[in-house]
Design a protein around this nucleic acid. Structure first.
Lengths: 111, 111
DNA sequence: AAAGGTTATCGTTATTCGACGATAAGACAT
DNA sequence: ATGTCTTATCGTCGAATAACGATAACCTTT
């Protein structure tokens, strides 16, 4: 009572109240963020971006992980939509999905 | 042998080879992405951005989670650096750390 | 000092992740 | 058809998440 400050919002001024985005985009953002929430998956995405590797075996060579582990991470990236796998003979060529990546960037940029 | 395509890079052309960022930024990005890799944490960040809530109790009211669970999520956000908590009397006022948020946005934008 | 309200921590439980080796599945070539 | 190469899946293990209730810790005010 003695202090002059309002006690309901101790540290937040009332300037610039932004509207809250929908919960749907929260789940979408969380899902995409989850896909890159592991250093190995970030490295995989970057490898695909750099086009220095796109086949599973090449990615395995670039990383200190077993082939099965890399395959698991690729599966997670595929399920998120960030990466697509295209069968090419006995190999599978993985590529970035530019649309999903753009969506991730947009959602993060507009947090 | 019969096909005319090269077999080492089945689907990736050699145009635009980007240099790979360092592994350090991969861990940093993964760590920050992990902080928002949960819908509840995305919602909390957005609540803090909108300044419609900043005290733990207010956040709890906005979410279908127990107080202890919200506190856990706030702890994770604090550890990531995205959020800072400032004690204000009996309450704690949580605020976004603009520097960390900018870093996250930059890292995602330059994936 | 005692009481009240607010937040953090503890302990528990169920679930999921991350990693690996082993093995299955699939696509070519012989 | 058989073998070979590449990738996906299975089973397992330890560790970490996510959620909750209960309780402790903290600051104010009386």
């Amino acid at each position: 009572m003695t202090k002059s400050k309002a006690r309901t919002k101790p540290c937040c001024d009332d300037t610039e109240r932004l509207p809250l985005p929908s919960d749907a985009t929260a789940e979408e953002l969380a899902s995409l963020a989850w896909a890159i929430a592991h250093p190995a998956r970030v490295r995989i995405v970057r490898l695909l971006m750099s086009r220095s590797a796109c086949v599973c075996g090449e990615i395995v060579e670039e990383m200190p992980l077993a082939q099965s582990t890399v395959s698991q991470h690729l599966k997670i990236l595929k399920e998120s939509g960030l990466v697509e796998g295209e069968v090419d003979g006995p190999r599978v060529c993985y590529c970035i999905n530019p649309t999903a990546l753009k969506k991730l960037k947009k959602l993060v940029a507009s947090i």
